[in-house]
Amino acid sequence: MSNTTTTAFEAEAITTKERTQLQLVTKRFFRHKAAVISLIGFITIVLFAFVGPYLWQWDHRIHTEIPSWAPPSPEHPFGSDRAGRDMMGTVMRATGQSLKVALVVALGSTFIGAVVGAVAGYYRGWVDALLMRLVDILFVIPFLVITAAMAGNVRGGTTWWHMALILMVFGWLGTSRAVRAEVLSLREKEFIEAARSVGGSDLHIIFRHLIPNTMSVIIVSATLQIAFAILSESTLSFLGLGIQAPDTSLGLLIQAAESSAFSERWYLFYIPGIFVILIALTINFVGDGLRDAMDPRQTMVRR
């Protein structure tokens, strides 16, 4: 009898519930309205690009049944181009290709950047000096020109896979600097000392302790990588140095409609452009929301 009263009393007294880190972050993220709307928008675009082709009757190829220069209509919501491609299907394919490049670049260069940053920050000394000089040096080389020079020379035509690899070579620089800065302060903390004193190897400390604790920096920079990769990929494709026809990409579509912004076929210019902007915009907002949500200095109250 008395036992139950105490528990009921205790339950009343404890008003704060324990929350895991993930719950806290999710809760904070969902308070950021722009970020949530952007996340929904981004997921919609991903579904449009990867599930859309299974539901839509036309693909990105030329079909003789499709009239040339068809204006937007229920059969062809985005119209058609001169050769007779349905633009809805083409934009789906193009968005998919650009997104594939972006996601691979984000994963790959975030991984490279995290490892380089953690290794440099953990070992300090000559390893750090060497790696960070390498980053400095790569920053001096103009990114767009060197990637263009590499992408323009791929034998047998550049595919989305080549694009991803080339962008990855230069994509990791910012991430590595951010992770290194975090690790430099983390390595002096007690838990790293504890891990070392119980005999944890360097590899163990880097991959099990340091990198997980810099996750917030890593996730934020990964989202920004997606935006960066989409913009770089479409720029290179626009210049004719990226993904090559007969495959398609958003940059190629804009290039094909280069001077039609104010003509009667304005939609051929704006639709692919708006897709590039929407992908980059939504992902930038998601990154911003994640940064706010994962910042340990943030409280539940907005200052």
Partner: peptide
């Protein structure tokens, strides 16, 4: 700021060029 960050230079350039012609 976010819009500018997300807009490809070449697309904005083409738009401004055509707008200037208009």
């Amino acid at each position: 700021g976010f819009l500018a960050l997300s807009m490809p230079t070449f697309w904005f350039g083409l738009l401004m060029k055509e707008a200037a012609v208009q």
